[in-house]
Amino acid sequence: MNQSALKNWGFPVGRTFVAAGPCSAETEEQVLETARALVNKDIGFMRAGIWKPRTRPGSFEGVGLKGLAWMDRARTETGLKIGTEVAEPSHVEACLEYGMDVLWVGARTTTNPFSVQAIADALRGVDIPVLVKNPMSADIGLWVGGIERLANAGVTKLGAIHRGVSSSLEMRYRNAPVWTMPIELMRLMPEIPLICDPSHICGKSELVAAIAQEAMDLLFDGLMVEVHPDPSSAWSDASQQLTPVEFLSMMNSLEMPYEQSDSTVFQNKMTGLRNDVDEVDSRILEFLGRRMDIVRDMGRLKSEQHVSTLQPRRWQEILDDRIKKGQGLDLSESFVQQLMQSIHEEAIRHQETDRIEGAG
């Protein structure tokens, strides 16, 4: 965990790091009311959207520059640090003029390397914390690339925000959590503080607490939560914002797990279980190796008889059968499907490689 980095950046860190505030700055009164409700609550910084990239024109797209003045006044009155999202160099310039304490790059912007590079160039030589949200698609390369572009511009205080990814499927959440994505970022960039945005993952206020707890269980360094004095009247994303009372109640109820335990009994049991997992994983890999040996024999037979490598009907039969068997083993359909697709792709690769080498 990298909460120490957040502390070194000058942010207050209580039980965990947290940024909180409305989706959008709407009026000066709303911004100040929110700030007053959050002061002395161990808030790392107060967040509010000044410019709001919307899918379709005609939606509320933020109040613009005057919102920065409201945020500045809130900071002066309460002592809270303040931050907002930037999407282009002019946003960066305006935020630096008002002395914003932290900036973040939004999911729509992270998707476009040209836009990230323009922001990075605008920040060259500036010592300010910058957070990068994951792109709207599950593309870890774009996320890492966005962070790297800022680092190459000399930005040293870098963090990441996970807000889930868009999906065309009907689901419980506004954006699919896809926890594998931030977990992979932790592996690739262990020095980068990682914050979860449960508000954008959920899209519904009643789901936020559960996702926030899940993020804590996965050792995220903090949270970014949307908090509004009166969510029902919010000008954007009303359904996902918490009231200050709901927010504070959620934070008090969160359990903060430790990465390790000093208990000898725990460590001994965990070591035994980890050894069991290692043994099972080794057997799985051995079985997969044997499967590929069989697949290569099948490929040679297909090649001799001029039969196509891909067998769509057989593949559908395999997929249906394995999903059904997986359900009996308490394995989710999506997991079994992803697993079998990976195995199938590797099998196709082996058969095609043998076919090409045979032809050569």
Rank of each mutant, 00 (worst) to 15 (best):
L6N: 02
V13H: 02
G21L: 12
E26T: 13
I43T: 13
M46A: 12
I50W: 06
R54Q: 14
R73I: 04
R73G: 04
E77S: 03
E85M: 05
M100Q: 15
D101M: 04
V105E: 05
A107S: 15
P113W: 06
S115G: 02
Q117C: 09
A118L: 12
I119T: 14
I119L: 15
L123D: 05
R124Q: 15
D127C: 02
P135Q: 00
M136K: 01
M136Q: 10
S137K: 06
G145E: 01
G146M: 00
R149Y: 01
A151K: 13
A151Q: 14
V155F: 01
S167Q: 05
L169H: 12
V178G: 01
M181C: 01
E184C: 13
P190I: 05
P190E: 13
P190G: 12
P193I: 09
H200K: 11
I201S: 08
L207Y: 11
I211T: 09
Q213M: 10
P229S: 12
P231C: 06
S233K: 12
S233W: 01
S236Y: 04
L242I: 09
F247Y: 13
L254I: 11
Y258H: 12
S261N: 11
D262L: 07
Q267R: 15
R274C: 07
N275F: 04
E279A: 14
E279M: 14
V280G: 10
L285N: 03
L285W: 00
G289W: 01
R291Y: 15
R291D: 14
V295R: 03
G299K: 01
S308W: 00
T309L: 07
Q311T: 06
P312K: 03
W315F: 05
I323F: 00
K325C: 08
G326V: 01
D330M: 05
S332M: 00
V336P: 00
Q341V: 09
H344R: 04
A347M: 06
Q351P: 06
E352K: 09
D354L: 09
A359G: 07
